[in-house]
Design a binder for these strands. Structure first.
Lengths: 103, 103, 103, 103
DNA sequence: GTGGTCTAGACCACT
DNA sequence: GTGGTCTAGACCACA
């Protein structure tokens, strides 16, 4: 899936504000699973540099509360991002944006 | 983790019988997560050829009932096996042993 | 179809007890599809107030097991009840009796 | 430590009401560690029969929020109660009052 | 009746 | 107070 498709799925339209933290909007009527929408939003934020290398990103519980989804749904998004190398997760510390190869 | 370590964690000792289906024994006092024990048992079975290529393997619910664990725990084992290419999973059909490369 | 016809199709005869849960009796020799019999039984229960507004009703699996029918059969009954506005279904939570409009 | 001493440390004074849930009061100026105060409160409740055998008791998070202490603090109380055989803890299920030996 | 998604929690290991 | 494991269910998409 292209970055453009991801954007269309969950991001605010042109002209809307883009505050710093969890401004993710979920479309609960979409064909796309909620965890995938969260994953896409995070990928967009990371690729756009809004969560920079080494930065901590909001916790599972932050997302769970902000988006009113269960923690398991958030976890699936985070889990796949870790598998794909976009973030690292440290028990007891948090989730961090991975360094990019050859920036 | 070596195949030998996996075996030690969840498999019956020498001399014990090895019936066909879900003879997996979980050690609930182990440091090793239950889903990892299930994954190891499956890997052993696949590598030992007891679930052959193209074979269907028991369903999530079969494992869940046989081992008295929740379906989510079984799923994590199956999910990782799929990511690592050991099995394929078809919605509505089942889980199958992947073909090996250059056997 | 009138409530009376529905009743004749799947409900216990007069004088039989009417316990709380799935006392639905299917007539497998009937011209009427099984899913329709289930739907009728549910409509009767709802209209009779035995599943009140906001109440959760038994799950797909409950019906499937109790009646020894496939889940797809149960789903068709639930699906039509949702389309007709008699119930709402929340993923991961359950199926609930819809509020009536101006009773 | 006697039951009377425990009581003095964390329980409401005479004449105060004793509601059902987490009415534990911590004395943050006490020489006694917070985890010990929590442990004492729980022991009092169990011995007084307010959490009966087999009952589930409030979760780590319940205590942590109600008392505004870290979860590690609550855990230490629960941990010692488990070591001493007063409660059992089941992952994913909860914490339960242990049966007494020959009462 | 399978695998896929989701809920609403719990306890566990660690910082 | 984080991420990790687990429970015990639910409904959904598909065959």
């Amino acid at each position: 899936m292209s970055m453009r498709e991801r954007e269309a799925a969950v991001l605010p339209g042109k002209g809307e504000s883009m505050p710093d933290l969890i401004d993710c909007r979920l479309n609960r009527d979409s064909f796309m699973p909620l965890y995938q929408q969260i994953k896409n939003w995070l990928l967009y934020k990371i690729e756009a540099g809004q969560f920079a290398e080494g930065d901590g990103i909001p916790s599972e519980v932050d997302f769970s509360r902000s988006l009113d989804v269960s923690r398991a749904t958030v976890r699936q998004a985070f889990y796949e991002l870790r598998l794909e190398g976009h973030v690292t997760r440290d028990k007891g510390r948090g989730t961090f944006v991975s360094p990019r190869k050859q920036p």
